[in-house]
Design a protein around this nucleic acid. Structure first.
Length: 115
DNA sequence: AGCTTGACCGACC
DNA sequence: TGGTCGGCCAAGC
């Protein structure tokens, strides 16, 4: 029949798939995901994560400024600690992601970090 | 059809 | 370091 009941939009599936691909200890920004995918924008990625992010390592997709997801900071921090994700003390002493080291390019070159 | 909202981003000041 | 502004793009009302 004509209508295909998409339980999960194709775009959402791509976002989730890439998210699962992010190695432990690394993160990608919403914008990076969108750019890597070559479609949509940061806001679309954010929407997907808000709706279906619970099924994937959501803590590995973060804002460009390295601030942990508001509302789930504790849970995120726990994961970062467990994965040894590069963190950095913020102004108020609050931990923020060290984007310079934690940012992952998407597998184009897995080993590139290391200053 | 128009306006608001959102797990955003970069430039500016 | 932090606040504001404009741009972005899809979904809801």
């Amino acid at each position: 029949m004509g209508r295909m009941s998409e339980e999960l939009p194709a775009y959402a599936e791509h976002v989730l798939e890439l998210t699962e691909r992010i190695p432990p200890g690394r993160v990608m920004t919403y914008g990076d995901v969108a750019e890597w995918l070559g479609e949509g924008g940061p806001r679309q990625v954010g929407r997907v994560m808000a709706l279906y992010g619970g099924a994937v390592p959501w803590w590995r997709v973060v804002r460009a400024d390295g601030v942990p997801l508001p509302g789930s900071e504790l849970r995120a921090l726990e994961h970062y600690r467990a994965e040894a994700t590069p963190l950095r003390p913020g102004a108020g002493g609050e931990p923020r992601l060290d984007m310079r080291r934690a940012r992952w390019d998407g597998g184009g070159n897995s080993d590139e970090a290391h200053t």
